[in-house]
Design a binder for these strands. Structure first.
Length: 133
DNA sequence: CACCTGACTCTAT
DNA sequence: AATAGAGCCAGGT
């Protein structure tokens, strides 16, 4: 699998319904430094659950109608948005299986949890976040 | 080949 | 909380 995009797609397919991850984390696991590239990969694909990829603040990054569509798809999977249109990554953030990642040649994200407190969720207890490792 | 654009993210105001 | 700037890199023009 030399095509970098294909590596991203393979990873995105691992995200279960009702869960989300971020461009940055996806890139980190694939060894792609620029999250923008991941965004572009999503933009180019039509056969992966692209709706489960959002930005590090838990918001949908797509502007326009497609963004609204993405939210609908996620809500249909049970993902909830707050008043600010944000998803609580602590609750809905996908925690990839470390063994699977390693077995498939992906890097282990140094801090999955960093996205967690990334941007405040009122009431979120940052001391009891699930750790990836 | 040069330049622009962006489904990004951090840090610093 | 909102805004700005830098870093980032593949694609399109």
């Amino acid at each position: 699998m030399s095509d970098p995009y294909e590596r991203i797609y393979q990873l995105v397919r691992q995200i279960p319904p009702g869960k989300v991850t971020t461009y940055g984390q996806l890139g980190a696991m694939c060894g792609i430094a620029d999250p923008r590239v991941v965004g572009e990969a999503m933009n180019a694909s039509h056969d992966v659950p692209w709706q489960r990829v959002i930005n590090s603040r838990g918001e949908i990054s797509i502007k326009g109608a497609s963004g609204a569509h993405q939210r609908e798809l996620l809500e249909a999977e049970g993902v909830e948005f707050d008043e600010g249109g944000r998803v609580d990554l602590v609750i809905y953030g996908w925690v990839p299986d470390a063994q699977w990642l390693q077995a498939n040649g992906y890097a282990i994200p140094p801090a999955l949890v960093k996205e967690k407190k990334a941007r405040s969720y009122k009431g979120a207890d940052t001391d009891s976040q699930p750790s990836l490792f």
